[in-house]
Amino acid sequence: MAIWVIVLAAVSSFVLGGLWYSPLLFGKVWNDENGGVPHPGHPARVFGVSLVFSLLAATCFAHLVGPAPELHHALHMGLLVGLGLVGASFAINYQFAQRSFKLWLIDGGYHTLQFMLFGLVFWLCS
């Protein structure tokens, strides 16, 4: 998979996240479920580190789906990875941390769509 496709997929997750966690969709509920207190951290650092991890996730996912995935395969793998691996892992952690099911739905839903979006980008660019 070409590096520009991986970068495009990683950036697409920022667009999705910006919308997903905005007040238009789940931002207020997500903030309320996290105690309503903003988390400290310089925005440049937060977004920079997040971009590095999005690139890592997109790179790993590219290896899973291969260089020219069929649409069904790419979306199915996105669902499996997002919900079955990331979402399930979050659910385990959220249970021990006593975090709400609503918060899990928001975060797990984002990552499920993130990986499905990766698959769509990889299919479109193959």
Rank of each mutant, 00 (worst) to 15 (best):
A57N: 05
G78A: 12
V46A: 07
L79R: 09
H63A: 10
V52T: 11
G66H: 11
E33D: 08
V37C: 02
L51R: 02
F61A: 02
N34H: 09
G84H: 04
L55Q: 06
A58H: 06
F47N: 08
H72Q: 10
D32C: 01
H73L: 14
F53Q: 05
G84Q: 01
G82F: 01
D32L: 15
G66W: 10
L55T: 07
G82M: 01
A88N: 00
G35C: 08
A62Q: 06
V37A: 14
A88C: 13
E70S: 14
G48E: 01
H63Y: 14
L56F: 14
P40Q: 05
T59A: 13
L85W: 11
E33I: 11
P40L: 10
S54A: 15
A44E: 03
R45W: 14
G48H: 06
V37Y: 05
H73F: 15
H42T: 10
V49W: 09
C60Q: 01
S54F: 09
V49H: 02
F61C: 05
S54N: 15
M77I: 12
L83H: 02
S89Q: 07
H72G: 09
T59M: 08
E33V: 03
F61I: 08
R45T: 14
N34S: 10
L83A: 15
N34G: 11
P43E: 02
R45E: 07
G82R: 02
A74R: 05
L83V: 15
L71M: 09
L79Y: 11
G48C: 06
F47Q: 07
P69D: 05
G36A: 10
S50F: 03
P69R: 07
V86Y: 06
P38W: 04
N34D: 04
F61G: 04
G36Y: 12
L75T: 04
V49D: 00
L51W: 03
H42P: 00
L75Y: 01
L80W: 12
G84P: 01
L55K: 07
V86F: 05
P38C: 04
H76Y: 09
L79P: 06
A58S: 11
P38A: 13
F61S: 01
E70V: 13
P67V: 13
V46Y: 07
G84M: 01
A68V: 14
H73A: 15
P43H: 07
V37N: 09
A44I: 15
G48M: 05
F53W: 15
G36Q: 08
L80T: 08
E33Y: 09
P38G: 04
L85E: 00
G48R: 01
G78L: 03
V65R: 08
D32S: 11
A88G: 01
P67E: 12
H42R: 14
A74F: 04
L55Y: 05
L80A: 10
F53A: 07
P67N: 12
L55F: 08
F61P: 02
G66N: 12
G48D: 03
G35K: 11
E70A: 15
